[in-house]
Lab assay of single mutants.
Amino acid sequence: VTLFVALYDYEARTEDDLSFHKGSKFQILNSSEGDWWEARSLTTGETGYIPSNYVAPV
């Protein structure tokens, strides 16, 4: 499992996005959609889309 960590805070703009804070960790579920990845937050357990340029591999 590849884990990613948030580099910045992000406020969701749609109900499909995940809001998160810098330092939040994610499991990436689908990275084939270009700049928006489907991810599960390891902090909240919620699933949604995150901007790929806001995260980096742990």
Rank of each mutant, 00 (worst) to 15 (best):
V1Q: 13
V1T: 14
V1P: 12
V1Y: 14
V1F: 14
T2L: 13
T2D: 13
L3E: 10
F4R: 03
F4G: 04
F4W: 15
V5A: 05
V5I: 13
A6Y: 02
A6C: 03
A6Q: 01
A6G: 04
A6K: 00
L7D: 02
Y8S: 06
Y8V: 06
Y8D: 07
Y8K: 07
D9S: 07
D9T: 06
Y10G: 00
E11F: 09
E11G: 04
E11H: 10
E11W: 09
E11P: 04
A12C: 05
A12M: 04
A12E: 03
A12N: 05
R13K: 13
R13S: 11
T14R: 15
T14N: 14
T14M: 12
E15I: 11
E15P: 13
D16C: 15
D16S: 14
D17H: 15
D17K: 15
D17P: 01
L18K: 01
L18P: 01
L18F: 10
L18D: 00
L18C: 03
L18N: 01
S19L: 01
S19R: 04
S19Y: 02
F20S: 00
F20P: 00
H21V: 14
H21G: 09
H21Q: 13
H21R: 14
H21N: 12
H21C: 13
H21K: 15
H21W: 09
K22F: 05
K22Q: 08
K22P: 03
K22E: 07
K22W: 04
G23H: 04
G23F: 04
G23E: 04
G23Y: 06
G23D: 06
S24I: 06
K25A: 08
K25C: 14
K25N: 06
K25Q: 12
K25Y: 15
F26K: 00
F26H: 01
F26L: 09
F26T: 00
Q27C: 13
Q27E: 15
Q27G: 03
I28C: 03
I28G: 01
L29F: 07
L29E: 05
N30I: 06
N30L: 06
N30Q: 09
N30S: 11
S31G: 09
S31H: 10
S31Y: 13
S32E: 11
S32A: 11
E33W: 10
E33A: 13
E33V: 10
E33N: 15
G34H: 12
G34R: 12
D35A: 10
D35E: 12
W36I: 07
W36L: 07
W36V: 07
W36P: 04
W37S: 02
E38A: 08
E38C: 15
E38T: 11
R40T: 11
R40S: 05
R40Y: 14
S41Q: 07
S41V: 07
S41N: 15
S41D: 14
L42K: 03
L42R: 03
T43A: 13
T43R: 08
T43W: 07
T43S: 12
T44W: 03
T44L: 03
T44H: 03
T44Y: 03
G45I: 02
G45L: 06
G45R: 04
E46I: 08
E46V: 08
E46H: 09
T47N: 05
T47E: 08
T47Y: 08
T47C: 10
G48N: 01
G48A: 03
Y49W: 15
Y49T: 07
Y49L: 14
Y49R: 14
Y49C: 11
Y49F: 13
Y49K: 13
I50G: 01
I50F: 01
I50R: 00
P51W: 06
P51E: 02
P51Y: 06
P51Q: 05
P51F: 06
S52F: 07
S52L: 04
S52P: 07
N53W: 15
N53R: 12
Y54K: 06
V55A: 03
V55M: 09
V55L: 12
V55Y: 01
A56N: 05
A56E: 11
A56S: 09
A56K: 10
A56Y: 09
P57L: 09
P57S: 07
V58G: 05
V58C: 13
V58F: 11
V58M: 11
